[in-house]
Write a protein that binds this DNA or RNA. Sequence first.
DNA 1: TCTGGGGTCCTAGGACCC
DNA 2: TCTGGGGTCCTAGGACCC
Length: 406
Amino acid sequence: MAEGKRQILHIDVNNAFLSWTAMDRLEQGEKIDIREIEAVIGGDESKRSGIVLAKSMKAKQKGVYTGETLFQARLKCPNLQVFKGNYKSYKKHSNDLYKLLLNYTDKIERFSIDECFLDMTNYLGKFDLLEKAYEINKRVKRELGFTVNIGVAHNKLLAKMASDFTKPDRVHTLYEEEIPTKMWPLPVSELFMLGKKTIPKLYDMKIRTIGDLAKQDKRLMIKKFGKHGLLMWEYSNGIDNSEVNYLEEKPKGIGNSVTLPMDINDEEKLAEVLLTLAEQVAYRLRRYNMCAGVVNVQLRTKDFKDFSHQKKLLNVTSNTKDIFNVAKELLKEMYKKGTMIRLVGLRVDKLISKDEVQLSLFNSEEDKKQEKLDRVVDSLKNKYGYNSVTRAGKLHSEDIVKLKDV
DNA sequence: TCTGGGGTCCTAGGACCC
DNA sequence: TCTGGGGTCCTAGGACCC
């Protein structure tokens, strides 16, 4: 490790989906700023995906939280207004933020659509890290029209924890010497990477705060929780040596899944859904110019039990047909007749770049024909939109699975 | 009551090999 | 007659993130 401390910022857009939708609406001439009322961005209840994706401060004050059902949210907040999300718009706002941040450093990791890590270590000049954080905070608000929280620290974990302190529109530091006062008193559930399965186990051990966790014996935590035990012990003590990954990474897997409008127990219909998913997944795969080595099918039963089967391919592929055929085999081997299915998912893993694939030699004439067909369809989709080209006889499954923009 | 969709990483067991 | 141990690959399932 280099001498001296790293200078890290974590930027977190406040109520991202809701703020961005609020801006879009105002731009379209709507009078009400949905940031100022009891509002959420939510899924579609008619498609059985009615959950809260983002909430306004006022909705939060009524106890509404992200991930709960709209039904539950309305119980707590009867006047709740629900708005639809728009992924394309969110992507654009996210890119605007990224471009602004590039003025401060090249070393930006896009952690999600609304979060970035910045490594400012060699980009500060005579400026102070905290000073820069305030400047970024003001500039985003002024130039982009939404607010961000910024965490200021010497590693990613502490910066992320800091940005999660009081919201919105705030800058917080979490330097090493501040850990005992600012982080240790927090409930242990606030620690990054501690989820709802681990928290009850920690409670059983009388661990309530992050400080309680920090005081545990490291070896005991490893013994009880393995790698995850080490990670949570280190995090609770503010230890994190991970780098800001600013280089764009290729995906390791690509998947699409869909909750069906109603539960299905007809294997043929499930296969039709898989065909639609195979087209989406393979199309995205080819857009990355990649091939897949593993195909995975996921089913969720009506009582929320998840199953998955996967299969390694003899030869990597990006053909819609190849992927669909394997998916259909997997469905056949895993589906127990009569089971009511709520969700169908298809994903591909073990991806490699097409440039690294030794094609030609093993490819049959049939494969080449299929690749050519996929290429033609892709170029039409690129030009006229994903839904412009559909397979004959597939319209029925598109009734089941409403095609979305990929 | 109703419970998304897209990811990454880890674990554990079985098969197989030396 | 007794029955190693280490390594790798594959698969199913689970935890966690936003």
